[in-house]
Amino acid sequence: MHKRLSDITGVVLVGGKSRRMGQDKAFLAVEGVPVIERILLALQGCFEHLLLVGDRPERFARYRLQVVPDSYPGSSLGGLYTGLQHAETDLIFVSSCDIPFPDPELIRLICAASASCDAVVPATAGGPEPLFALYRKSCLPLMQAALEAGQYRINAVLGQLNVRTIAPEQLAKLDPGGRALLNINTPQEYAACRLET
């Protein structure tokens, strides 16, 4: 049994508009369980503190967690910035709300690599996955500058931070099927993900 970490806050970004999906991705059921609940279950096993970032807190009232409104609505960088800003810990582990198979072992691996860097980001063959990653409050000034300049892409900020990358080969050892970082953005991806289960 792993001990839950008290020095890292688990943050779930729930403010997306789900335009491509056409319905709220957080509440799509996979194996009969809404994606948001699958993510919360994984994070609750890893962290003592959890925080949701997004608007319309009434949608998530049943989970009895703090929901903070996004300082820069509609952008994932804004959600990440808001989570870092409101967390009481120096470190946060962030997840988007569209990852149906979050792996607690991968979360712990990412968190264990946090020493002397601003962020720890896993990378697949397709590139970095900055919305299932670890960030330190030292990222806040650069994030704020980018947001105030109208730059809302996380990858633009990552290039200026001291980032430790979890390489695809390392990920493959832990998650040979590549399911842990799968995210669902379209009805086609949702259908494919349900076929996998």
Rank of each mutant, 00 (worst) to 15 (best):
V35C: 05
P176F: 05
S75I: 13
D70H: 14
L161H: 02
S95M: 14
A26L: 05
A26M: 06
P100N: 12
L91S: 08
Q23L: 11
G83I: 14
A180L: 02
L52F: 15
Q23E: 15
S114H: 15
L5Q: 10
M1V: 06
G78N: 03
R108E: 09
Q144V: 04
T89D: 00
G10L: 09
G79E: 08
V121S: 01
Q66K: 15
P34H: 07
P57V: 12
L52M: 10
D7L: 07
V14E: 01
H86M: 08
E31D: 15
T197F: 07
R62W: 03
Y190K: 10
K17Q: 07
V163F: 01
A167I: 05
Q188F: 09
L65V: 13
S96R: 08
I110S: 06
A113M: 15
K137E: 06
S6F: 13
L41Q: 11
Q144E: 14
P168V: 06
R38V: 05
E148S: 09
V33N: 08
E196C: 07
D98M: 09
Q44H: 12
M1F: 02
G22L: 11
C97Q: 03
L106N: 02
V35G: 03
D55P: 08
A26P: 09
A156P: 00
F101D: 06
P128V: 13
Y72D: 13
D55H: 14
L50Q: 06
P176S: 05
L182F: 08
K17V: 05
D90C: 03
F60V: 14
M21R: 10
G22N: 06
P168D: 07
D103N: 15
C193S: 12
V163S: 02
V12I: 15
F132C: 10
E196M: 13
A149V: 01
A112W: 04
Y72C: 09
S114P: 00
A133Y: 03
V163W: 01
N183L: 01
R179H: 09
Y72N: 07
S18F: 03
I110K: 01
D103F: 07
A133C: 10
S96W: 04
G54C: 10
L147M: 08
L51M: 08
V68Q: 10
S114L: 04
P168I: 12
L41K: 13
